[in-house]
Design a protein around this nucleic acid. Structure first.
Lengths: 212, 212
DNA sequence: CTCGAAACATACCCACCGGTCTCTTTAGCG
DNA sequence: CGCTAAAGAGACCGGTGGGTATGTTTCGAG
């Protein structure tokens, strides 16, 4: 609760303007001047609310990471099988990103750090492990084909999602990101899951091949 | 044919040093000073051979694009089925990239332009179309499952390859890129190809699931 | 050997960007 | 009202990076 309401508004305005620029250009190529021009503010306002350019970026990454835990919890609570949960989490994440610039910026910033700079431990490994554990769990339930390596599947899905986001971000500002994600899932999961597995959780699986 | 042999050598040295920096840091974060320090040269030498920083980047992108046409021709000449040709092209490309810094830098620069800057037509669309045509051709031969959309497969593979390269580049300097690409192909192609299809062309398909 | 162009070195310029400093305005509160 | 701190404006600074201008070496031709 800020001492003044106006302060909260401008802080949000800065975050939003920064998100829009970061989303388009990434961290390096985004200048504070551009952000402030977009927000209709000046450096005085900025450095009152944030300690540095990096601090805004961190704030955006923060918001983003909070949200994912939330999404994950929600799908965990639904009690569907692991593969369906994975599908749901991917799809919901993609849809949220398509709808929210602030979220997109946070994701991009988070990724840019990892892949731009060399040798960063990276949150991305966390994702890979999380996905791998879901796939492994599916294996214990007998939902996998024989010979499927959970780690390899996790690497594939992670990479595919990353690439899809980049392309979608550059071409349609992530508008077609959900569709691309569903395509990826549609062409990977059937190859991973055993023939008996079916997507559950009131989801629509689009663009995958028919069983034949 | 340069007037002096030494000139050719230094030009190559600049290209190599620039490639190493571009490969690690990307275009924006690479400074000429760092490149020249690495090459043991000065700005005088640089601006004699290249008009600008961007010109070196273009030269690297140029080399890269020449090579792909070559790879594509080679696999076309082998006369294998379309899906096997796709597999071969992907695998060979990945292996060349793992081995050659100059190539990697060109690829990264080419991609950075497309995805960093908004609204660039992009060579990447060319790739998608090319892949889609191969997949469509496979469909005409009856090598596809029913319900498979060649365009969607192309998007998926393109994105997956892009993501795999980024992750591999950041973590192992693309050393495990060939393995990651084979994983991707192993978990996508079986889901796309009809059950009768088999990989040909003396290639090893690793990490894919068993048929069951 | 000489001379001139090619090939490279070095000092310099300038625009920009993140960050700081000082000053003004606004809002809460007695 | 009037006082004070929050909130914001706007000028300014240091550093860096791409690019240039000018000087110096190397090489090949005649």
């Amino acid at each position: 609760m800020p001492q003044q309401d106006r302060a909260y508004a401008t802080r949000e305005a800065i975050l939003r303007a920064a998100a829009e620029e970061f989303d388009r250009l990434g961290y390096e190529r985004t200048s504070l001047t551009a952000v402030l021009a977009r927000a209709g503010l000046t450096k005085g306002a900025f450095y009152f609310h944030f300690a540095s350019k990096e601090a805004v970026a961190r704030a955006l990454v923060e918001r983003q990471s909070e949200l994912w835990a939330q999404v994950r919890e929600a799908w965990h609570a639904r009690g569907v099988d692991p593969l369906s949960a994975l599908h749901g989490m991917f799809a919901e994440s993609a849809e949220r990103m398509a709808a929210d610039v602030v979220l997109r910026a946070g994701v991009r910033l988070n990724a840019d750090r990892e892949f731009g700079y060399p040798g960063v431990p990276s949150t991305h490994l966390t994702w890979e492990k999380m996905i791998a554990s879901y796939v492994a769990e599916a294996g214990e339930r007998g939902d996998l084909r024989s010979g499927v390596d959970p780690d390899a599947v996790a690497r594939t899905l992670c990479g595919a999602a990353l690439g899809a986001r980049l392309i979608s971000s550059a071409t349609t500002a992530c508008a077609d990101f959900p569709a691309r994600i569903r395509e990826v899932l549609g062409y990977v999961l059937p190859c991973v899951a055993s023939s008996g597995w079916k997507l559950s959780g009131s989801q629509k699986a689009v663009d995958g091949p028919d069983d034949s």
